[in-house]
Amino acid sequence: MIFTRGESEDETVVAMLASALRRDISFGALLPDQKLKLNALRQRYGGSNHSMRETLRILTAEGLVESTAQRGFRVTSATEEDLRDICLVRLEVERIGLTRALSQGDTAWEGRVIAAHHALRKAEARVAGAPDDLTALEWDEACRAFSAALMSGCGSPRLIDLQRKFFDQSRRFRLALLREGMLDFAARRDRQGALVQAVLDRDTDTALALLEQEVTGEFKTGA
Rank of each mutant, 00 (worst) to 15 (best):
E94I: 00
S77F: 04
G155I: 00
L88A: 13
S67L: 13
A130G: 00
E94R: 02
R90V: 01
R84T: 10
L83G: 06
R144C: 09
E124S: 12
R188D: 13
A136T: 11
A186L: 10
D82F: 03
V199C: 15
Q192N: 13
R172S: 13
I96V: 15
A108V: 13
L183P: 01
K165P: 00
Q70L: 12
F146M: 08
G111D: 08
E141L: 15
G129C: 03
W139F: 15
M182C: 06
Q104K: 08
V75A: 14
L150S: 04
R164C: 07
Q197K: 12
D205L: 12
D85Q: 12
M182Y: 02
E141K: 08
E66H: 07
F167V: 04
R71C: 07
D184L: 04
Q163P: 01
T79M: 09
A198W: 01
E66V: 09
D85N: 11
R174F: 15
G72T: 03
D140G: 10
A101G: 04
D161A: 15
L98M: 11
L134I: 11
A115F: 05
A115E: 14
R174Q: 11
R179N: 10
P157C: 08
E124C: 06
S156I: 00
G181V: 06
S147F: 08
A142G: 06
D184E: 09
C154F: 04
T76N: 06
D106V: 00
C87P: 00
R189C: 05
K122Q: 10
A187W: 05
T76S: 10
F73C: 03
M151Q: 13
R74D: 02
S67I: 03
A186S: 10
R84I: 09
A149V: 02
L102Q: 01
L159F: 07
E141M: 13
A187C: 09
A142N: 04
A119L: 11
F166S: 02
I160T: 12
S67R: 15
A149E: 01
L177P: 04
I96S: 10
G181H: 08
I96Y: 06
R158Y: 12
Q163R: 10
V113I: 14
E92T: 08
G105S: 03
L88W: 14
G72W: 04
D184M: 02
D168C: 06
E110H: 05
S152E: 08
Q192G: 09
D168Q: 10
G105L: 00
L102T: 00
R100E: 09
A125I: 01
I160L: 15
L137F: 09
E81H: 12
L88H: 14
S67Q: 13
S103K: 12
R126K: 11
G111N: 10
T99C: 09
